[in-house]
Design a protein around this nucleic acid. Structure first.
Lengths: 153, 153
DNA sequence: CTCATTGCAAACGATTTGCATACCG
DNA sequence: CGGTATGCAAATCGTTTGCAATGAG
């Protein structure tokens, strides 16, 4: 098949995971993964499904759902529970951890990285003899655009 | 009625909010709020309902649910979406913001506060011209007890 | 051929709501 | 009395799963 995952790391992850689990490959799944990784956004299953159903005719909701879960399981994507009552998936870029600014008005999501915070978090964890596996920093508020609109009213 | 909310601040919040919305007070609601604030834990609706149904005979799930939503709306409690697919509510103590260490094994939740982090967050927000209203820092991993167990196996 | 993948519809669990009744002011 | 609060059951929403048909190795 011609559908290659751009990132070598992700590709190996998936390959190893598939082997371990005895999974087969499939055209549809690869197309979804390809699209998801290329877009590099914070998709809910619903959003991704709606974006993709034109591009992959006859695709089912469960397939998108199952593919995202799969990516989460093999560590290529991570599940996030921002504000509302549903899950968003985002590609993980192993190189560096990032955190989020989330606009409560327009739902824009801005990513940022900050080494100081990483450092402090490690310090805090040490204090509590806590063995860190992951962390999430989410800053909620208004993005510059929405803040401006708010002011002008 | 004899059921007073200990914290003056919370009490005023609720009073103002009720006035604005034309709400009446009710014995059951006050009992729930009282219990919730006194316990000061991270309850899911389900947990709180189960703890409280012995203490308040005939109490309904929706009442607990509606009361927690109400507290969230008037700013006395905040809704958190930790790991799993349900919501937890925690009392907000206006005095100082705190964050969480969450054990992925036993679900223990440890609270902590750290001024440095607050400072850095404000700095980051400024960089993005982001108007912060709230933030959440969650560190996931193993608490000391679970980490020890893990090691011994 | 064997077994994984898929689409569909139906199950599920958490949350939310409609409605008749109970309660508050 | 007029309108809010409550309990119950039923609706809703996102997520999961069973199953028969399809696809991959």
């Amino acid at each position: 098949m011609n559908f290659k995952i751009k990132n070598r790391y992700d590709y190996n992850c998936l390959k190893n995971f598939s082997k371990k689990r005895g999974l087969k490959s499939s055209q549809k799944r690869m197309l979804i993964i390809d699209y998801f990784l290329k877009q590099d956004k914070h998709y809910s299953v619903d959003e991704l499904y709606n974006h993709i159903k034109n591009k992959i005719p006859g695709i089912g909701y469960s397939t998108v759902y199952r593919t995202l879960k799969l990516l989460a399981e093999c560590g290529i994507a991570s599940e996030r529970h921002f504000e509302k009552g549903f899950t968003r998936f985002e590609p993980i870029h192993k190189e560096e951890h990032h955190d989020h600014l989330i606009c409560t008005k327009c739902s824009a999501i801005i990513e940022f990285t900050n080494q100081e915070i990483e450092k402090i978090q490690r310090k805090i964890a040490r204090n509590f003899r806590f063995f860190v596996s992951d962390h999430k920093l989410e800053i909620y508020g208004l993005c510059s655009r929405c803040a401006k609109k708010e002011k002008n009213q």
